[in-house]
């Protein structure tokens, strides 16, 4: 009896620290998750309503039968609004083009900064990094004037090109390439790959996690970009989703169609979630500094 008691009292003492730590970690994680999820919940809640007016008392379950019916109606309204499918397609086309261009340029530039030796390399790299600190609005007017001068205003290329070449992508790619041992490229040289083949067949595939991270970052920034399309686009045919959202504010902001606006929001979030789900596994490896690499 005495021995048994002793055992019972001694074991938990050791575990208390671990338990306390677990509770702390999970507690903080849960609180953070709630903080992040509440706006999503609110979005869904609003999208599953039938009018601009809030019900009182509010129905907090968005998945009830009536709510679902309201959502379908909202979806129909939104999808039929103006050229909504075209605008959606615009967003997809622009973002995919920006991602492709940005990852291509970013990986080549990152590779050059990581591997090639040329005069002024480090200075140039820090100059590229420094552009991260310049907010887009600062250069927006200059970009606008530039587009005006080359007659690219209100064109797809005008929408796409200024968003390509992100310093963040260059940085991510460079950091990752630096963790790849040079010997692998030496081996490829001896096996007979020419330098550009080494990049595409060996170095870039090895940098897949960084490419995933760059893809996600550039996709999100382009997909959510509001200011540049707002300045660039003067024709309804070129509207992207963030601009479309503005319509549901109502005329002069007098009336805001929250239910429709939130429905558009949900439609807007879907591709981002899909992209993240696809690349999440690589993404984490791409942005975490790989201490185990060597």
């Amino acid at each position: 009896m005495f021995n048994g008691e002793q055992r019972v009292t001694r074991k938990p003492v050791k575990r208390v620290h671990k338990q306390a730590r677990d509770i702390l970690i999970y507690g903080v994680s849960i609180i953070l998750a709630i903080i992040y999820l509440v706006p999503f919940y609110w979005t869904v809640l609003k999208a599953f309503r039938n009018s601009i007016f809030a019900n009182f008392p509010p129905d907090m379950n968005p998945l009830s039968k009536t709510s679902l019916a309201y959502f379908l109606t909202n979806l129909k309204t939104v999808w039929g609004f103006g050229d909504f499918p075209l605008w959606y397609l615009n967003s997809v086309v622009v973002s995919v083009a920006v991602v492709a261009g940005s990852v291509f340029v970013g990986s080549l530039a990152g590779y050059a900064f990581a591997r090639l030796k040329f005069p002024g390399r480090d200075l140039l790299f820090y100059a590229v990094l420094a552009t991260l600190m310049i907010p887009f609005p600062v250069i927006s007017i200059a970009s606008y004037v530039f587009m005006l001068d080359i007659h690219w205003l209100s064109t797809y290329q005008g929408l796409i090109f200024p968003q390509i070449a992100s310093a963040l992508d260059v940085f991510i790619m460079r950091q990752y390439f630096m963790t790849i041992p040079e010997e692998v490229e030496f081996a490829a040289k001896i096996d007979g790959l020419k330098p550009w083949q080494i990049f595409f067949k060996v170095s870039a595939p090895m940098a897949a996690p960084a490419i995933a991270a760059a893809t996600i970052f550039s996709f999100i920034s382009s997909w959510n970009n509001f200011l540049w399309p707002l300045m660039e686009v003067h024709s309804l045919n070129l509207f992207t989703l963030p601009l479309v959202l503005n319509f549901f504010k109502g005329a002069n902001g007098t009336q805001i169609y929250w239910n429709q606006m939130m429905t558009v929001n949900i439609l807007t979030i879907i591709p981002t979630v899909v992209i993240f789900a696809l690349f999440e596994k690589y993404f984490i490896r791409g942005i975490s500094i790989d201490v185990s690499a060597r």
């Binding site: 041992p181 010997e183 692998v184 030496f186 081996a187 490829a188 040289k189 001896i190 096996d191 007979g192 790959l193 020419k194 060996v202 595939p205 090895m206 897949a208 060597r294």
Partner: peptide, 20 residues
């Protein structure tokens, strides 16, 4: 000469295999 044109083969300390 480019490395592959020298008909040499090399073995590396860290193996340097193509991981993909």
């Amino acid at each position: 000469y480019y490395p592959s044109d020298r008909n040499v083969a090399m073995v590396f300390q860290n193996f340097a295999l193509y991981p993909h």
